[in-house]
Design a protein around this nucleic acid. Structure first.
Length: 964
RNA sequence: GCCCAGGUGGUGGAAUUGGUAUACACGAGGGACUUAAAAUCCCUUGGAGGCAACUCCGUGCGGGUUCAACUCCCGCCCUGGGCACCA
């Protein structure tokens, strides 16, 4: 008899909903387990396979826990507010309210048909007023405590969605909804002070049971950096007041740096173009240029700023005083310094910061090295430089022309010593000069160099004739045209020593060619030397007065102590995280519960007046595009009485970000109809935090960050006593179709409803989970899903073999108990894929057995029930059970005595290689096992005539004979 | 560039955390049943060599530790994700 999955799944899914099989008694529950999946946005296309997958990852665990006697709460609801639904409504020209009504009905029906164990009696929908009343209440509480505030800020304005967006809603420089490039606009908006919890959110991550990948995403988003705040004084003395010693010309400007140990290496100072002090300090002479620069920098779009990273800037004419050595350093403005981070001003240390280095190179600003990667190498090179000074002077007196080449020349160009340049690579003009040069250095420099034990062959580059030179650098020999434009000489200075050096361009040419010949892919000069050695924070301080000789870490500590003592600075921690902008100039969201009264000022709507109802508009709900929400034009909505003075007042016209709706829904599930409070505190204490939460990793920063923020705030309000809402969070991987991303345009979208009809929901769900570990992306194939369909049918057929009184074979009983054990273990770590594999193994064993006892059968039905609930329920009822398989603690448990194998395959290795296996009793003694191993005929062949060094025995596993 | 996660047959993926590499499933090949097809059932299936028993090679690459390495250590390469002129 063929299994009619459609009829049976339909029957049970309806019965479960009607009987409220999965509706727990929250109050009297003894053993609460709260299983949650991210509630869906009710898309018009209906249930998406990605959503569905997250649902079932939670659902199978819920069923497993239920079968184990837990009171499981697996609620369901809708995230219906927001731009997603509103944009769709705009597209089909239908009111959002209507769209919402229609799509939720369809969506709910689909979910129910799939046989999830949800409690549909406590459904939540963010667009219902009994829900968003409390969303607004949260706002008023935040406002009360100064956690919600208004500020003028430079924000992302999406010209297509016609609203501002939070930083989090910009992905890869474009709007995450419509992929439009946002514009920068200065607007007054409402913010939540999420930055107040930055450290708390960071700390909470440490001992949370979340995947590393999600934690790391959050850590990066919060972006903590440890450093110091240092006071600089800027002197703005224009030409006209050159002689003035007026103290008012001095302005204090603070900088933030993560490398206070490099303070002695600061050679210039930069302000962001938006910095308020720019105008004050710019001298008359440079005013024009500075103003021009600010204008062009401000006009640059976000895209230009990120794509074209060539640094630009202008000198202001002002100088800053370096507090550690009172050196005067020039003050520049440049748009590589952002106003929004730190203090909007930096001290520039080109020798040890890539960006400053690039800028200094471009504008010819001095570079001063204050950290050496290796102090010995640095000293060696420094000694070599001193010798070079002597040689240079002598050569010049004699009229000998030479140019430095190679690593040391690079050091001259870069201005920093990054390794031991123990040799001199150089070029002289011709044979004659070469001989003279050699003589010269033998007289003077060579001796010194030799004494210092610098290797021979320090000249390994030579000359040829007037027009061509032949250069030999190590293995490389090549010809270079002396007329080459890049072959120009420069006089460079390194640590106060001047020498003649070939142009950087020319040296790079040679180095690049050299790298190619040696098959080094990367440009040695730029990549390895500069970034790897000079810009890393592992090194020893040099040229830094009292910091000299200290490791970077120690130097940091010492300088901070010093700054603090002199009241010049202090240690500081900065975060990348910004406050959350929640204003949206749209219609489909909860209105911001704020009233503006000319007399009494800005006020939150009192709790008794909540909710501020979103007016039902037939027309005029479309985004206005004038920077204000569409509600601004609705007079009945806008005009109110001031709650304080009862005079005329205006409402706030903006609505709140959709992410606020979804930041607290899991609290509301507990008591969705509660009119008195946001949720029942007693029940909240009992049921929260959530035991398991599953959803897409695309919400790793946005949604999860906001839920944690709101939860921490609830904790501060005293509503709960924990900081983090989800004990365990698992991000489910993406489902691909035949290895490709699904999309409507490709026509490869998997519709769960369609597969429910084609193969049944039990088979579909099992297949999705069987594909691989829950967090990984996996490829769905139509052929693959047939495998689990076959499995379901196979189980159904097993029923024919049931005998009331039958003794199963030892093998069957052992396999059953082993399976129960590993399935339990797999459930503890959500390894559904291997759990299913074990259940399949067991059914393979059962299908070859002659008959199956009823006891075994009952146990088997229970353990497959989380994955194939309809099938299990059907077969369960066929046994005469009146109640659902899920109503009580039916999980069988295993007998550890029966799990153990009494026979094992003893592995015999010779030198670690498998040579034989022998069946022996599981508790075989070491001596016996060793004897068997050596007696084995196969083994004898390998050890004959060889010396046995030792024999390793691993109990219950193997014998390894080590021979020589 | 920095920070996470990963790399195993033709494919999706297993491997008790150092102890028989490739469980389970898909696909493929062969066979049975059938007038035929579908469905179902049985056998084979990492690669190379051999009639065979068997042998050698094999978990991204190169080293190392160990009696024994997919697993641990060092150095790379590649893929996915997060952050990114963040000082």
């Amino acid at each position: 008899m063929k299994y009619n999955y459609q009829k049976i799944e339909d029957k049970w899914s309806k019965k479960w909903v009607a009987d409220k099989t999965f509706t727990p008694d929250l109050k009297n529950a003894r053993n609460p387990y709260y299983a949650l999946f991210m509630f869906p946005y009710p898309s018009a296309e209906g249930l998406h396979i990605g959503n569905f997958y997250a649902f079932i990852c939670t659902d199978v665990m819920a069923k497993y826990k239920k079968l184990n006697g837990f009171d499981v709460f697996e609620p369901f609801g809708f995230d219906s507010f927001g731009m997603h639904l509103e944009n769709y409504a705009l597209k089909i020209n239908e009111r959002p309210v209507e769209v919402e009504k229609r799509t939720t009905v369809n969506f709910r029906a689909q979910v129910q048909a799939a046989g999830l164990s949800c409690d549909y009696t406590r459904e939540v929908d963010t667009t219902r007023q009994e829900y968003y009343k409390w969303t607004q209440w949260i706002f008023t509480k935040l406002f009360e405590r100064g956690m919600a505030y208004q500020k003028e800020a430079l924000l992302n304005w999406c010209p297509s969605c016609q609203t501002v967006l939070a930083d989090e809603q910009i992905e890869g420089g474009v709007c995450e909804r419509c992929k439009t490039t946002p514009e920068k606009k200065t607007m007054k908006q409402w913010f939540f002070r999420i930055t107040k919890y930055a450290q708390r959110m960071l700390d909470g991550l440490d001992d949370m049971d979340w995947s590393e990948i999600t934690k790391s995403a959050q850590k990066n988003w919060i972006g903590r950096s440890d450093g110091a705040r240092v006071k600089f004084h800027v002197i703005a003395r224009s030409e006209a007041t050159k002689q003035s010693r007026d103290a008012s010309d001095r302005v204090e400007v603070e900088v933030f740096t993560t490398r206070p140990d490099t303070l002695f290496g600061a050679t210039y100072f930069v302000l962001s173009p938006e910095h308020p002090l720019v105008k004050k300090i710019t001298t008359d002479e440079y005013k024009k240029e500075v103003e021009k620069y600010i204008k062009t920098a401000g006009a640059k779009s976000e895209l230009e700023r990120t794509e074209n990273k060539e640094k630009t800037g202008v000198f202001t004419g002002a100088y800053a005083i370096n507090p550690v050595n009172n050196e005067k350093i020039p003050v520049w403005i440049a748009d590589y310094v952002m106003m929004g981070y730190g203090t909007g001003a930096i001290m520039a240390v080109p020798a040890h910061d890539e960006r400053d280095f690039e800028f200094a190179k471009k504008y010819n600003l001095p570079i001063k090295q204050v950290v050496a990667p290796d102090i010995q190498e640095y000293n060696k090179t420094n000694d070599l430089l001193k010798c070079l000074e002597v040689i240079t002077n002598k050569a010049e007196n004699k009229g000998i022309k030479f140019w430095l080449l190679g690593g040391l020349a690079c050091a001259f160009h870069v201005g920093v010593i990054w390794r031991d340049h123990g040799d001199l690579d150089l070029v002289v003009k011709d044979n004659k000069e070469f001989d003279e040069f050699i003589k010269l250095i033998e007289e003077e420099g060579f001796k010194k160099i030799k004494e210092k034990e610098i290797e021979k062959g320090f000249i390994n580059s030579i000359y040829k004739n007037k027009d061509n030179i032949e250069i030999d650098i190590g293995k490389y020999t090549g010809k270079w045209d002396l007329q080459d434009k890049d072959f120009t000489e420069e006089k460079k200075e390194l640590n106060g020593i001047k020498s003649r050096v070939l142009s950087f361009e020319f040296i790079k040419k040679i180095k690049n060619k050299q790298a190619k010949e040696r098959k080094l892919e990367k440009d040695l000069l730029d990549k390895k030397y500069l970034e790897g050695y000079v810009f890393s924070d592992l090194g020893i301080a040099i040229n830094s007065d009292f910091l000299d000789g200290l490791e970077t870490k120690e130097a940091k500590k010492k300088i901070i102590k010093w700054l603090k003592k002199k009241n010049l600075g202090k240690s500081e921690i900065n975060y990348r995280l910004r406050d959350w902008c929640i204003s949206r100039q749209r219609y489909w969201g909860p209105p911001v519960p704020i009233i503006y009264c000319e007399k009494c000022g800005v006020q939150a709507v009192p709790e008794s007046d909540l909710p501020v109802l979103l007016p039902e508009l037939d027309k005029g709900w479309e985004p206005a595009g004038d920077g204000r929400g569409p509600l601004a034009k609705v007079d009945e909505f806008m005009n109110v009485k001031c709650p304080k003075c009862s005079g005329p007042a205006k409402r706030e016209a903006d609505v709140m970000d959709n992410f606020l709706d979804s930041a607290w829904y899991f609290f509301r599930y507990i008591t969705p109809a509660n009119e008195k409070e946001i949720f029942d505190k007693k029940l909240g204490k009992k049921w929260l935090p959530i035991d398991l939460y599953v959803g897409g990793n695309e919400h790793a920063v946005l949604h999860l960050m906001y839920t944690r923020f709101i939860t921490m705030f609830f904790c501060d309000l005293g509503l709960i006593n924990f900081d983090d809402p989800f004990k365990k969070f698992r991000a489910n991987g993406m489902i691909l179709k035949d290895g490709k991303k699904m999309s409507k345009s490709k026509g490869n979208v998997i519709n769960p409803e369609e597969y429910g009809k084609k193969v049944g929901y039990d088979a579909l769900k099992t297949y999705l989970l069987f594909l691989g570990p829950l967090s990984e992306d996996r490829s769905f194939t139509d052929q693959g899903v047939r495998g689990t369909k076959r499995w379901i049918e196979k189980i159904y057929k097993l029923e024919e073999k049931i005998l009331d009184k039958y003794e199963d074979s030892e093998e069957v009983i052992r396999k059953l108990h082993q399976t129960i054990k590993v399935v339990q273990e797999d459930f503890e770590v959500e390894k559904y894929n291997t759990a299913i594999a074990r259940l399949m193994e067991l059914s393979n064993v059962l299908s070859v057995a002659k008959n199956i006892s009823k006891t075994t059968w009952v146990k088997y039905l229970v353990i497959i029930a989380p994955f194939a609930p309809a099938l299990a329920e059907e077969l369960w009822s066929k046994l005469g059970n009146k109640e659902s398989i899920f109503t009580q603690k039916n999980w069988p448990g295993f007998d550890s005595g029966l799990v153990k194998e009494d026979k094992i395959q003893l592995v015999i290795q010779v030198n670690g290689k498998l040579r034989d296996t022998v069946e022996v009793s599981a508790d075989i003694s070491e001596a016996k096992a060793k004897k068997i191993a050596q007696d084995s005929e196969k083994i004898r062949k390998w050890i004959e005539g060889k010396e046995i060094v030792k024999i390793i025995f691993v109990k219950g596993k193997l014998v390894n004979i080590v021979i020589k």
